[in-house]
Design a protein around this nucleic acid. Structure first.
Lengths: 136, 136
DNA sequence: ATGTTATCCTATAAAATTAGTAGGCTTTTA
DNA sequence: TAAAAGCCTACTAATTTTATAGGATAACAT
């Protein structure tokens, strides 16, 4: 399951996607409208910024904006930044790989199945974008 | 990500699958051969038993055995018993549904995408079985 | 220059979940 | 009736998640 933080991140990002091309949006505005704890949201947006998904501007008239078009921001990328691995096991993770203890990767059947599951999930999450999350 | 407990469960179940039709297997045997903490494994096997996935027998010559063929035990079922929901959000879970706060399910774009992801993942996990996890 | 507005940064704390242990109870078999 | 096994309840430790607090820094307006 995705953490609450990740849910918040998606809600905030959709909000920003709806303001793409417009003036930057303040944390406090997103916090109120999306009902996300302000200080927690601060961290979330900062994480996304560090991953170059957002741009920010300080001072009056400042705030956050998407640094790329909603159509070019896929869901897998967001999840990896905020939530971590998408795969069900570390040993089948593309971005957060860790070797299993006591398991031969060549023959491990658990791993083999989790690889297939991962590919199925990723196929969706890498194709779908923030734009797909916005209301038509 | 699946919990360590779920990884242990899969290892134990594959072990039992390889002994399907034979004598029951003792917890201690599985614990040693699969390198799973014995007392922890006790809980795991008990959970699986309560879900009617395993049968047990006490006393000498006792132990655990699968109550159905490995070909009829799909991975989604195991994950739900030990790990919980497969869906990425509670509001798209078939077996552990919970309503999101502050979200209209009809229009929520996040939910819509998570539904698609869930279906893709489930399609694999419900089709693949313990048998598929065993070595050919 | 200086105050205001906003993000940025670091530390801390509370709550929840996960992982594991301990120890005695019950059932089956020899 | 003793042994060998699972069964049951409670507890503890570690880790992760979900925040909160408070000041530092940057941009802008007057």
């Amino acid at each position: 399951m995705l953490s609450k933080k990740t849910q918040y991140a998606f809600r905030a990002l959709v909000h920003l996607a709806e303001n793409y091309g417009k003036e930057p949006v303040k944390i406090s505005t997103i916090s109120i409208q999306q009902k996300i704890p302000l200080k927690f949201l601060e961290h979330i947006l900062n994480d996304l910024k560090k991953a170059d998904m957002l741009e920010s501007k300080k001072g009056k008239g400042g705030g956050y904006r998407l640094s790329v078009s909603p159509k070019n921001l896929n869901l897998a990328t967001v999840i990896r930044i905020i939530n971590g691995p998408i795969a069900l096991l570390p040993c089948v993770s593309l971005n957060f790989y860790e070797k299993c203890v006591d398991c031969d990767e060549e023959t491990c059947g658990v791993r083999k199945m989790m690889l297939i599951a991962r590919d199925a999930t990723l196929k969706v999450l890498e194709k779908k974008t923030l734009y797909d999350m916005m209301n038509e």
